[in-house]
Amino acid sequence: MELTWELVAFLGFAVMTLGSGLMVVTSSNLFHSVLFLMTSLFGVAGLFVLLVAPFLAAIQVLVYIGAIAVLMLFVIMLTRQVMSRPELYNQQMAGALVAAAILFLALLFVLTPLADEIGGDVAQVNAEVIAEADDAPDVDYITVEELGRAFVTRNGFVLPFEVTSILLTAAMIGAIVVAREDEA
């Protein structure tokens, strides 16, 4: 396989995502776990950029790192006893290993035929794609404008788009009800 800058960047972001993901589950301080989770999510944002989805990458940083991880920090600080976890491992470890192995095999089973379908020689396909891309720079590039059109067109995503507002409203009401002090 040829060593391109994209490959270097991919490896960097993959190591960042997986390495911090490992630190999330092995760190003994929950607060540190969330900080590592932020790094892991940033790695995912980098992978989105490599997949030519810059809007998604920006949202990943904005929502996941900027809002959800910060909310997780709040939740950890809301509870008195959760800051440190004395025991990292429990009896369910064997079961978790089996479940992870099954999930890995299932993913392998699903993804291998897909990779074959794209073409056994991935490097060959990559070279073709790059050759094409030089002629037409905007091959698979989905702009934010196209996303906006897809939100509202009838054969696009107009129904999921409207249903999202109901989901957000339900979440809003849920947030109020959960944080209420009286009827606990």
């Binding site: 904005l62 929502v63 008195r80 934010v144 906006g148 939100f151 999202t164 957000l168």
Partner: peptide, 28 residues
């Protein structure tokens, strides 16, 4: 322990954040 209000404000912030993100592609 932080007061629970921080959680509620944070939660509502996320929701409005996501709403604004849905507005961006449409506004363009």
């Amino acid at each position: 322990r932080l007061p629970v209000q921080f959680h509620r404000v944070g939660m509502l912030f996320i929701l409005f954040d996501i709403e604004v993100i849905f507005f961006i592609p449409w506004a363009l």
